Computed example of a mutant assay.
Amino acid sequence: MTSLSALPQHKARAGIQSVEVGFALLEVLSQAHGPLMLRDLAAAAAMSAAKAHRYLVSFQRLGLVVQDPTTARYELGPATLRLGLATLSRLDVVKMARERLPTFLQASGHTLALAVWGNHGPTIVHWQESARAPSVNLRLGDVMPLLSSATGRCFLAFGPRGGRADRSAPLLEAELSLARKQGRSDVPTSAALVRAMVHETQERGYGWVRNVLLPGMSGVCAPVFDANGQMALGVLSMGVTASFDIDLQAQRLLAMTRQLSADLGGSHT
């Protein structure tokens, strides 16, 4: 008799292996730069051409794959587009990011926040403070300035053009006017300096400030892009300047936001 201790603790759920095998063909097509010949598609999926052809016949019937009658090359079909759009429509980028913050918080040790573009500019929608960091006087719903915050600089550099950019114009002009009146030297005070700041932010791939918005505090904000190439979210990391390594925090943050973008069907350019 087999003892209880000899039984496997976790039994894998039964599935249909042929479905899993056939999916390799769809995966290859999704990563290809264009339609593929049968032999190339089969080789990339590590199966014989005859075996691949049988799967492709079924996939064509389902609309998952189409074949060009002229070139005989295979490409993803309309059913895959419908599935992809349905998946994207159900994605909640804020929820996805919130679920990943605890792991990132443990690795970074600094306070984190999520921001989206609201009616009045970049708006904090989630805040997660590090136990090791000092309390910061920011609240949910706070609108971050475009010129003096890492979040604002990130949205200014990567935010979508068109309607959102039009709404940012009066906000930017008001901040420029105030900065000139105050004689500030730590933020741009002219359109030319704003363009230079935006260019640097785009080159780096993230917005950052050191002792600008809050004395003794530094921050980094990286963008998350959706499938349309639009900035959907900003992820902010901030901490005491003396212990906040901007370059290190930026690289950690970019690894997270790039993965989020990929999961949304977007990418960092």
Rank of each mutant, 00 (worst) to 15 (best):
T2A: 13
S3K: 10
L4D: 14
L4F: 08
S5G: 07
L7R: 15
Q9A: 14
Q9S: 15
K11A: 12
G15E: 10
Q17I: 04
E20G: 12
F23P: 10
L25Y: 01
L26G: 13
E27R: 15
Q31T: 14
G34K: 10
P35V: 14
L38C: 05
R39D: 15
D40C: 02
D40M: 02
A44L: 01
A44T: 00
A46C: 09
M47G: 02
A49P: 06
K51H: 04
A52N: 06
H53S: 08
H53R: 09
L56M: 06
F59S: 07
F59G: 07
V66R: 09
V66Q: 08
R73S: 04
Y74C: 06
T80A: 06
R82W: 06
R82V: 10
L83A: 13
A86D: 12
R90S: 11
D92H: 12
V94D: 01
V94P: 00
P102R: 10
Q106Y: 09
L112E: 12
A113H: 09
A115E: 03
H120R: 13
I124R: 00
W127I: 00
S130Q: 12
S135D: 07
R139F: 00
L140I: 00
D142M: 01
D142P: 01
L146A: 01
L147P: 06
A150V: 03
G152D: 03
G152V: 05
R153D: 04
C154M: 14
C154Q: 05
L156E: 04
L156H: 01
F158D: 08
G159H: 02
G159C: 02
P160F: 13
A165Q: 13
A165N: 05
D166P: 00
L171G: 06
L171C: 09
L171M: 11
L171N: 05
L172E: 08
L172K: 08
L172G: 06
L172P: 05
E175K: 10
R180N: 11
K181V: 14
D186Q: 06
T189Y: 00
S190I: 04
A191P: 04
A192H: 03
R195C: 07
M197A: 07
M197G: 08
V198G: 02
H199E: 11
T201N: 08
Q202H: 04
Q202D: 02
R204N: 11
G205I: 11
G205A: 07
V209Y: 02
R210S: 15
R210T: 15
R210Y: 01
N211V: 08
V212W: 03
V212N: 03
G216W: 02
M217Q: 10
S218Q: 10
A222T: 01
P223N: 09
V224L: 05
F225D: 09
F225W: 05
A227G: 06
N228T: 14
A232V: 11
A232H: 09
L233N: 08
L233D: 06
G234R: 03
M238E: 00
T241H: 03
A242R: 15
L254W: 10
A255D: 11
R258E: 12
Q259D: 15
L264F: 12
G265V: 10
G265T: 13
